[in-house]
Write a protein that binds this DNA or RNA. Sequence first.
DNA 1: GTCTATATTTTGATAGAC
DNA 2: GTCTATCAAAATATAGAC
Lengths: 194, 194
Amino acid sequence: MVETRKEEIIRVAARLFKEKGYSAVTMRDLAKAMGIKAASLYNHIDSKQDILKTIIISLAEEFTAGMVTILQSEISSLNKLKRIIALHVGITGENTDGMASLNNDWMHLEEKLDYYLMLRINYEDNFRKIIREGIAAEEIVDKDPDIMLFSILSTLRSLYIWIPDKKNLDPLQLSHELSAILLNGINKKVKKIS
Amino acid sequence: MVETRKEEIIRVAARLFKEKGYSAVTMRDLAKAMGIKAASLYNHIDSKQDILKTIIISLAEEFTAGMVTILQSEISSLNKLKRIIALHVGITGENTDGMASLNNDWMHLEEKLDYYLMLRINYEDNFRKIIREGIAAEEIVDKDPDIMLFSILSTLRSLYIWIPDKKNLDPLQLSHELSAILLNGINKKVKKIS
DNA sequence: GTCTATATTTTGATAGAC
DNA sequence: GTCTATCAAAATATAGAC
């Protein structure tokens, strides 16, 4: 599939947004990075806001779709968490720059802000539900589910910062190592009931 | 100690920067939040950049000082990590809003950018060193130290988002619960050697 | 599809009165 | 310490030629 000019603009914009944030990137910055004049951008996109909307909503819907698939699968809670980790590693690997906007610039969405917030809250609720089920099934330690959710999700949401530095690691391997550390911890001598 | 007008401006600015980011907050926004006109701000601060610099550098130096103390203490690597976790919980609890700028707006520093980057890299290097020592001492599992560093630090750096929602939890308790989850993981049945 | 030219608004910051 | 008035630069976006 060939990249349209609009897609190219969005890809380059995501890269710039990652470096300085949506608000600090001007249409002139974007035009210069594309090798054209700012006015020419408007032949392909409606507005600066249009670019942000496209980047964020498409990613948010990808995560939502991934979560739905995981929820439907009949596997243990721990394995669902592993698949969530793989989902984040996968999407972030495919669109590292866009993930920066999703994480840092969602508050600058105008028309689509409410829709985004709904998807985000839904995602977190489903994530928390999986943790609670894991606790009930005695797969997961009986501690505050919010702290576990926060801890894991913070790491997964920061992947975009860190994945570019680890280009040598393939997604599958990174997924496995990350799962091991997030789920089993780093303490070598753990008191457990196994 | 009484809050000076300059300190008040910086406190209010940090709150606004947390909501929309440094670039999206105008001096008029800040003035309105202070109940004065934009021009009046300049009787107390030199520039918008001056505010950002103050917020970020003071926090970065606090973390650096905390890390120095921890490095000097003669305790196990795991206990050093616990003290780092407590350091983040403590500083973030004291200045939640400022932590947003430290994490998200450091790239907008002008004059002090190089200094900040030096402190940041130093901090991460010391953090990594503690993890490596823990592996060598067989306190910490022998996995990629960068992934462990990334995972723990991502969570700690995101505390500012999450601490305001958990106002009921006292810092000491949060520190302990977070240490348990970050160091021991959430998996109830873990293969271990103890 | 890109350009030049330009309209309109907003921005950080200063000068000087009170 | 705050105000009004104002400046100069920079922002998003449009119109119309090529």
